[in-house]
Amino acid sequence: MIFFENVSKIYSPTSTALKGVTLRIQPKEFVSIVGPSGSGKTTLLKLLTVEERPTEGRIFFDQSEVTMLRPKELPYLRRRIGKVFQDYRLLPTKTAYENVAFALEAAGHLTKEIEHDVPQVLELVGLTEKIHHFPHELSGGELQRVAIARALVNRPEVFLADEPTGNLDPVNTREIIRLLLKINELGATVILATHDKEIIDSLDRRVVALEKGEIIRDEERGKYII
């Protein structure tokens, strides 16, 4: 379970990203965080992986308070959380296979496991044929699928997607959303940050709407209304 307790993030006196956000997300839930650019969606996700620390408030993941974790403990937290971005963030000098394998290597898995798991997860996202291609040889949709495979390969409990379809055409967008639903079906909590109205309306899942850093609406089967 994820719990944000009265969390604020103030970057500078003139820039407040989040104001008193309290949010509870149950295991295996599929939650969309919506809102215009600058409403605090990205910050919310960054706080959970401790890329940023809150100015006020506490954040819990399972039993542990992530805001109290020491730098040394952060890698172990991050291995339990998969994350994808609008700009994919793949390593440009590594092939699709190596990018996915890297997450397992970093977590210290055995080579045998890696050789077994990586092709499997790449197959799951439908990239078996481009397994040894470098990022510059792949299309946007393919890049995002490699990124999803990388986030998925550590079998994370939580899957964060920060505007994953922002750079994609409608066909690829549908494909990515279909993958996110599949990941959710397989048992992971999925938190999707987006401002794509069509996606939200078609999902028919829980929607949390942010505006200027505050939660203005939280509906169990929500639509995109701002």
């Binding site: 890698p75 172990y76 991050r78 963030r89 793949l90 390593l91 890297f102 970093a106 977590a107 990388r150």
Partner: peptide
């Protein structure tokens, strides 16, 4: 630096 960022994100330790 972007690469380092990605490494941190997938849970690589500082020494790794």
């Amino acid at each position: 630096r972007d690469e380092i960022n990605v490494m941190r994100l997938v849970g690589a330790t500082a020494w790794y």
